[in-house]
Design a protein around this nucleic acid. Structure first.
Length: 258
DNA sequence: ATGGCCTCGGTTCGAGGA
Protein backbone atom coordinates (compact mmCIF):
# COMPACT_ATOMS: atom_id res chain seq x y z
CA UNK A 1 0.00 0.00 0.00
CA UNK A 2 1.32 3.41 -1.02
CA UNK A 3 -0.27 6.76 -0.28
CA UNK A 4 0.80 10.27 -1.22
CA UNK A 5 -0.04 13.94 -0.82
CA UNK A 6 0.56 16.81 -3.25
CA UNK A 7 -0.42 20.46 -3.23
CA UNK A 8 -0.85 20.97 -6.98
CA UNK A 9 -1.61 24.74 -6.97
CA UNK A 10 -4.47 24.48 -9.52
CA UNK A 11 -5.55 21.08 -10.80
CA UNK A 12 -6.58 22.68 -14.09
CA UNK A 13 -3.00 23.71 -14.77
CA UNK A 14 -1.39 20.64 -13.17
CA UNK A 15 -3.61 17.79 -14.40
CA UNK A 16 -0.99 16.66 -16.95
CA UNK A 17 1.58 16.55 -14.15
CA UNK A 18 -0.73 14.56 -11.88
CA UNK A 19 -1.42 12.01 -14.63
CA UNK A 20 2.26 11.79 -15.55
CA UNK A 21 3.24 11.35 -11.93
CA UNK A 22 0.59 8.66 -11.29
CA UNK A 23 1.76 6.73 -14.33
CA UNK A 24 5.26 6.56 -12.87
CA UNK A 25 4.01 6.25 -9.26
CA UNK A 26 0.84 4.13 -9.22
CA UNK A 27 0.04 4.83 -5.57
CA UNK A 28 -3.13 3.41 -4.03
CA UNK A 29 -4.33 6.86 -2.96
CA UNK A 30 -3.24 10.41 -3.76
CA UNK A 31 -4.43 13.41 -1.73
CA UNK A 32 -4.50 16.73 -3.58
CA UNK A 33 -4.69 20.26 -2.18
CA UNK A 34 -5.32 23.63 -3.80
CA UNK A 35 -7.30 22.13 -6.66
CA UNK A 36 -8.90 25.59 -7.17
CA UNK A 37 -11.64 23.79 -9.11
CA UNK A 38 -15.40 23.82 -8.58
CA UNK A 39 -16.93 20.34 -8.35
CA UNK A 40 -18.76 20.73 -11.68
CA UNK A 41 -15.42 21.14 -13.45
CA UNK A 42 -13.46 18.45 -11.60
CA UNK A 43 -11.63 16.32 -14.22
CA UNK A 44 -12.94 12.99 -12.90
CA UNK A 45 -13.22 11.41 -16.38
CA UNK A 46 -9.55 12.01 -17.22
CA UNK A 47 -8.56 10.70 -13.80
CA UNK A 48 -10.84 7.66 -14.16
CA UNK A 49 -9.18 6.89 -17.49
CA UNK A 50 -5.92 6.63 -15.54
CA UNK A 51 -7.51 4.07 -13.21
CA UNK A 52 -8.46 6.30 -10.29
CA UNK A 53 -11.76 7.15 -8.64
CA UNK A 54 -12.09 10.69 -7.27
CA UNK A 55 -13.82 12.35 -4.36
CA UNK A 56 -13.48 16.08 -3.95
CA UNK A 57 -14.79 19.29 -2.57
CA UNK A 58 -13.81 22.49 -4.31
CA UNK A 59 -14.58 26.15 -4.79
CA UNK A 60 -13.78 28.90 -7.23
CA UNK A 61 -10.25 30.36 -7.24
CA UNK A 62 -9.04 29.16 -3.84
CA UNK A 63 -8.49 26.02 -1.76
CA UNK A 64 -10.16 22.75 -2.78
CA UNK A 65 -9.11 19.21 -1.88
CA UNK A 66 -9.50 15.76 -3.46
CA UNK A 67 -8.61 12.12 -2.95
CA UNK A 68 -7.80 9.92 -5.94
CA UNK A 69 -7.91 6.17 -5.28
CA UNK A 70 -7.43 2.92 -7.16
CA UNK A 71 -9.86 1.30 -4.69
CA UNK A 72 -13.44 2.01 -3.60
CA UNK A 73 -13.81 4.81 -1.05
CA UNK A 74 -16.26 4.68 1.85
CA UNK A 75 -17.61 7.07 4.49
CA UNK A 76 -16.70 10.29 2.70
CA UNK A 77 -16.59 13.35 4.96
CA UNK A 78 -16.20 16.86 3.60
CA UNK A 79 -14.89 19.58 5.93
CA UNK A 80 -14.88 19.67 9.71
CA UNK A 81 -18.35 19.29 11.26
CA UNK A 82 -16.98 21.12 14.34
CA UNK A 83 -15.82 24.17 12.34
CA UNK A 84 -18.30 25.84 9.97
CA UNK A 85 -16.14 27.25 7.18
CA UNK A 86 -16.80 28.32 3.61
CA UNK A 87 -13.25 27.27 2.63
CA UNK A 88 -13.05 23.76 1.21
CA UNK A 89 -10.01 22.34 3.01
CA UNK A 90 -10.76 18.80 4.24
CA UNK A 91 -11.94 15.56 2.69
CA UNK A 92 -11.73 12.10 4.24
CA UNK A 93 -12.44 8.57 3.01
CA UNK A 94 -11.83 5.00 4.08
CA UNK A 95 -9.71 3.07 1.57
CA UNK A 96 -8.66 -0.56 2.06
CA UNK A 97 -9.14 -0.29 5.80
CA UNK A 98 -7.18 2.95 6.03
CA UNK A 99 -8.90 6.17 7.08
CA UNK A 100 -7.38 8.78 4.76
CA UNK A 101 -7.74 12.43 5.79
CA UNK A 102 -6.69 15.00 3.19
CA UNK A 103 -6.19 18.50 4.59
CA UNK A 104 -5.18 21.93 3.36
CA UNK A 105 -4.29 23.94 6.45
CA UNK A 106 -4.70 27.73 6.07
CA UNK A 107 -1.56 29.63 5.14
CA UNK A 108 -1.76 32.28 7.89
CA UNK A 109 -0.30 35.09 5.76
CA UNK A 110 1.66 36.90 8.52
CA UNK A 111 2.05 36.28 12.23
CA UNK A 112 -0.62 38.15 14.16
CA UNK A 113 -2.85 38.83 11.15
CA UNK A 114 -6.52 37.90 10.99
CA UNK A 115 -5.60 35.00 8.69
CA UNK A 116 -3.07 33.84 11.28
CA UNK A 117 -5.76 33.78 13.98
CA UNK A 118 -8.01 31.87 11.58
CA UNK A 119 -5.22 29.36 10.99
CA UNK A 120 -4.79 28.75 14.73
CA UNK A 121 -8.55 28.44 15.29
CA UNK A 122 -8.80 26.09 12.30
CA UNK A 123 -6.00 23.92 13.71
CA UNK A 124 -7.71 23.80 17.14
CA UNK A 125 -10.91 22.55 15.56
CA UNK A 126 -8.95 20.15 13.31
CA UNK A 127 -7.36 18.67 16.45
CA UNK A 128 -10.78 18.15 18.07
CA UNK A 129 -12.23 16.52 14.96
CA UNK A 130 -9.17 14.29 14.38
CA UNK A 131 -9.49 13.07 17.94
CA UNK A 132 -12.99 11.80 17.12
CA UNK A 133 -11.83 10.31 13.78
CA UNK A 134 -9.06 8.43 15.60
CA UNK A 135 -11.61 7.15 18.12
CA UNK A 136 -13.84 5.92 15.26
CA UNK A 137 -11.17 4.42 12.99
CA UNK A 138 -8.29 2.09 13.89
CA UNK A 139 -5.90 3.17 11.11
CA UNK A 140 -5.79 6.90 10.40
CA UNK A 141 -3.41 8.69 8.03
CA UNK A 142 -3.59 12.50 7.92
CA UNK A 143 -2.01 13.78 4.72
CA UNK A 144 -1.73 17.27 3.42
CA UNK A 145 -0.27 20.71 3.22
CA UNK A 146 0.04 21.68 6.90
CA UNK A 147 1.68 25.03 6.14
CA UNK A 148 3.92 24.38 9.16
CA UNK A 149 7.59 23.43 9.18
CA UNK A 150 7.73 21.42 12.43
CA UNK A 151 11.38 22.02 13.32
CA UNK A 152 14.37 24.12 12.28
CA UNK A 153 15.78 21.16 10.36
CA UNK A 154 12.73 21.51 8.09
CA UNK A 155 13.77 25.06 7.14
CA UNK A 156 16.56 26.00 4.72
CA UNK A 157 17.49 29.13 6.70
CA UNK A 158 16.07 28.94 10.24
CA UNK A 159 17.62 32.28 11.23
CA UNK A 160 16.01 34.18 8.37
CA UNK A 161 12.70 32.41 8.99
CA UNK A 162 12.70 32.68 12.79
CA UNK A 163 9.29 33.75 14.09
CA UNK A 164 7.79 34.00 10.60
CA UNK A 165 4.54 32.43 9.55
CA UNK A 166 4.91 28.68 8.81
CA UNK A 167 7.54 28.32 11.55
CA UNK A 168 6.22 30.43 14.46
CA UNK A 169 6.00 28.96 17.97
CA UNK A 170 2.20 28.92 18.07
CA UNK A 171 1.99 27.08 14.74
CA UNK A 172 4.62 24.57 15.80
CA UNK A 173 2.80 24.06 19.11
CA UNK A 174 -0.41 23.34 17.18
CA UNK A 175 1.46 20.79 15.05
CA UNK A 176 2.89 19.26 18.21
CA UNK A 177 -0.61 18.95 19.70
CA UNK A 178 -1.69 16.99 16.62
CA UNK A 179 1.26 14.66 17.20
CA UNK A 180 0.11 14.25 20.80
CA UNK A 181 -3.00 12.53 19.45
CA UNK A 182 -0.46 9.73 18.94
CA UNK A 183 0.12 10.74 15.35
CA UNK A 184 3.66 10.21 14.09
CA UNK A 185 5.33 12.26 11.34
CA UNK A 186 5.98 9.43 8.86
CA UNK A 187 8.99 11.24 7.39
CA UNK A 188 10.76 11.23 10.76
CA UNK A 189 10.20 7.50 11.34
CA UNK A 190 13.25 6.93 9.15
CA UNK A 191 16.79 8.22 8.81
CA UNK A 192 16.66 11.02 6.23
CA UNK A 193 19.23 13.08 4.38
CA UNK A 194 19.61 16.70 5.54
CA UNK A 195 17.87 19.57 3.75
CA UNK A 196 14.84 17.69 2.45
CA UNK A 197 11.94 20.04 1.76
CA UNK A 198 8.52 19.82 0.13
CA UNK A 199 7.95 23.44 -0.93
CA UNK A 200 10.15 26.02 -2.65
CA UNK A 201 9.16 29.58 -3.52
CA UNK A 202 8.74 30.31 -7.21
CA UNK A 203 10.97 33.36 -6.73
CA UNK A 204 14.72 33.75 -6.22
CA UNK A 205 15.55 30.50 -8.04
CA UNK A 206 14.61 28.96 -4.71
CA UNK A 207 14.29 25.41 -6.00
CA UNK A 208 17.63 25.41 -7.77
CA UNK A 209 19.22 26.75 -4.57
CA UNK A 210 17.18 24.32 -2.41
CA UNK A 211 15.76 27.21 -0.40
CA UNK A 212 12.77 25.25 0.82
CA UNK A 213 10.57 24.27 3.72
CA UNK A 214 9.12 20.89 4.69
CA UNK A 215 5.46 21.77 5.21
CA UNK A 216 3.66 18.81 3.58
CA UNK A 217 3.30 15.88 5.93
CA UNK A 218 1.84 12.43 6.48
CA UNK A 219 0.85 11.74 10.09
CA UNK A 220 0.06 8.18 11.20
CA UNK A 221 -1.64 6.45 14.09
CA UNK A 222 0.61 3.86 15.85
CA UNK A 223 -1.01 0.96 13.99
CA UNK A 224 0.00 2.50 10.66
CA UNK A 225 3.37 3.79 11.85
CA UNK A 226 4.25 0.20 12.74
CA UNK A 227 3.50 -0.91 9.17
CA UNK A 228 5.16 2.07 7.45
CA UNK A 229 8.33 1.07 5.59
CA UNK A 230 9.33 4.36 3.92
CA UNK A 231 8.43 8.03 3.56
CA UNK A 232 10.06 10.23 0.93
CA UNK A 233 9.64 13.53 -0.87
CA UNK A 234 9.64 13.15 -4.66
CA UNK A 235 11.39 16.28 -5.92
CA UNK A 236 11.21 15.24 -9.56
CA UNK A 237 7.91 16.97 -10.54
CA UNK A 238 9.22 20.26 -9.13
CA UNK A 239 11.75 20.16 -11.99
CA UNK A 240 9.11 19.79 -14.68
CA UNK A 241 8.01 22.69 -16.85
CA UNK A 242 5.39 24.93 -15.15
CA UNK A 243 5.55 23.02 -11.86
CA UNK A 244 3.57 23.28 -8.66
CA UNK A 245 5.63 24.97 -5.96
CA UNK A 246 5.12 21.81 -3.83
CA UNK A 247 6.48 18.29 -4.34
CA UNK A 248 4.61 15.06 -3.57
CA UNK A 249 5.28 13.20 -0.30
CA UNK A 250 4.86 9.42 -0.42
CA UNK A 251 4.53 6.77 2.30
CA UNK A 252 4.69 3.01 1.82
CA UNK A 253 3.20 0.29 4.06
CA UNK A 254 3.36 -3.41 4.64
CA UNK A 255 -0.02 -5.05 4.26
CA UNK A 256 -1.89 -5.53 7.53
CA UNK A 257 -1.44 -8.96 9.09
CA UNK A 258 -4.22 -11.35 8.07
C1' DA B 1 14.05 46.40 -1.45
C1' DT B 2 7.83 45.52 2.57
C1' DG B 3 11.17 43.06 -4.23
C1' DG B 4 11.71 38.85 -7.11
C1' DC B 5 6.87 34.23 -9.07
C1' DC B 6 2.53 31.88 -10.13
C1' DT B 7 -2.74 31.39 -10.44
C1' DC B 8 -7.19 33.24 -10.79
C1' DG B 9 -10.70 36.35 -12.30
C1' DG B 10 -11.27 39.26 -15.50
C1' DT B 11 -9.21 42.25 -18.26
C1' DT B 12 -3.37 44.20 -18.67
C1' DC B 13 -3.92 44.74 -12.16
C1' DG B 14 -5.01 43.10 -7.36
C1' DA B 15 -5.45 39.33 -4.12
C1' DG B 16 -3.59 35.35 -2.19
C1' DG B 17 -0.30 32.07 -1.64
C1' DA B 18 4.06 30.52 1.39
Amino acid sequence: MKIATWNVNSLKVRLPHVLQWLEANPVDALCLQETKTVDEKFPSAEIAAAGYQSVYTGQKTYNGVAILSRHPMQDIVRNNPLFPDASQRIIAATIEGMRIVCAYVPNGQTVGSEKYQYKLAWLDAFHAWLKSEIALHPNVAVLGDYNIAPADCDVHDPVAWQGQVLVSDLERAAFQRLCELELADAFRLFPQPDKIYSWWDYRQLAFRRNMGLRIDHILLTPSLAARCTACVVDKLPRKWEQPSDHAPVVAEFLQAAE
